[in-house]
Design a protein around this nucleic acid. Structure first.
Lengths: 238, 238
DNA sequence: TCAAAAGTGTTCGATATACACCCATGC
DNA sequence: GCATGGGTGTATATCGAACACTTTTGA
């Protein structure tokens, strides 16, 4: 072990969650595979620059990807195994993309949340950016499948500490059943409808509106909205 | 932003918790300050080697420090700001220690737990290793004070997800009030003694023993021990 | 009039909180 | 005998879980 300290490139990879109908989705980008064998989906990410710290890098990636300037972002884990770029395709792709021979690469994974119907204003280097339901994730390069798996665990425990993040995934006005389905998707279990209504009645930071759904072929559901001020009052009283 | 991607050394730093009487303690090591102005306490850590991933590095540091081969370890956050080695003392110390000019350094912080009265079998490069109560932490180099602060938040949420880690901090046999004081130290609040007894009665994985304290100048307290098998049964039923 | 989803109340068990006094031991 | 900490029970509030029927609306 002669003084051979690791000197390495560092990337960030972002697991961006969106919620639609009953499913969590993740934002994926398409890359060309090096030997023109087609395309492949991966997590959006980038090497970080000399002058940046990881947070800045993550913001940059997401801004390039979506045009959104500020979004909720959380660093959740670093992936450092030397084997994470053992696949030759990945090695070649890195060299083609960054014009550097890269033999080792650690990545810092971020988790982020966005309303899924938000319009993107992308200046992205990627040809295609799209939502992918977490139940239908493709095989991805590097350890991206593992990163997503850990991101799912992380989002669960984050919601428990700070339920505010649920409302970053829902539209400004949402129905009780949208919120319930989001809970179900995140906690991966069913909630009884009646019990769930009682639960949201107890959350004083959820304001029921007069407004209801229109033109739905069943009884119209009431809209709710999230009241940040009430929420913050609640939190300090814990 | 001309293709100047960060290539950097990577270190790991370990926040090792121990518990004594009523206080959480952290294991600190002493370093010589570069200009012989004395010594200074810091978190134990090391640059990681070429062949290592971060987990291996963390295990190596803790093994060198304590002689303990396997301990509970959890990566909790990376610290990547370019400013974290802006202090000249720190720059000089790095150069003196690692015989390399180091201009940027990111660190991956780990959290670990150990019984405070465990004997160390240290092969450490440090002159002094000692426990420091978290209420009396000195000013430390780099961003080590910040790292400890975040480690404290992390240990709280870790205990909530997985209370087993409490028993890594207590002796094999412990009294109810030792456990209560540990809860208090971690959650930073008081627990009512009677309610706490009810709480531990409900934990079937805590076995009350016949054995009691001896030679204490007050009523002798019953010892309990933690039953891992019962605990694991419990967990899957959640 | 039918299909589809919205909305609503009661009971039970588990858990958290508040609160005050007697017990065992060494000195 | 006294100082020190150990050990105990009751009442109340909140929360989660189980469980079935009526309402509204568009097609």
């Amino acid at each position: 072990m002669e003084n051979s300290f690791l000197q390495t490139y560092v990337s960030i990879d972002c697991v961006v969650f969106g919620f639609d109908k009953s499913q969590l989705n993740i934002l994926l980008v398409q890359r060309d595979t090096p030997h023109s064998t087609g395309t492949e989906w991966k997590l959006p990410g980038s090497l970080i620059y000399q002058q940046e710290d990881a947070n800045e890098g993550a913001h940059r990636v997401l801004n390039e990807l979506t045009g959104v300037k500020t979004m909720t972002l959380r660093q959740f884990k670093s992936f450092t195994s030397p084997q994470r770029i053992s696949n030759l395709c990945d090695v070649d792709w890195l060299e083609a993309t960054y014009h550097n021979k890269i033999e080792r690469l650690i990545t810092i994974a971020y988790l982020s949340l966005i309303k899924i119907n938000r319009k993107f204003n992308s200046v992205s280097k990627y040809k295609t950016v799209d939502w992918c339901p977490i139940s239908e994730l493709p095989q991805m390069p590097f350890d991206h499948n593992q990163i997503v798996k850990e991101a799912l665990e992380e989002i669960r425990s984050w919601v428990e500490r700070d339920p505010i993040i649920l409302f970053e995934l829902l539209p400004t006005k949402f129905t009780a059943s949208e919120l319930r389905r989001l809970y179900q998707a995140i906690h991966h279990r069913e909630y009884d409808v009646r019990n769930f209504h009682k639960k949201i009645t107890r959350m004083e930071y959820l304001l029921p509106l007069e407004e209801k759904q229109e033109k739905v072929s069943h009884r119209a559901a009431r809209y709710y909205k999230f009241d940040r001020v009430m929420y913050n009052k609640r939190k300090i009283s814990l």
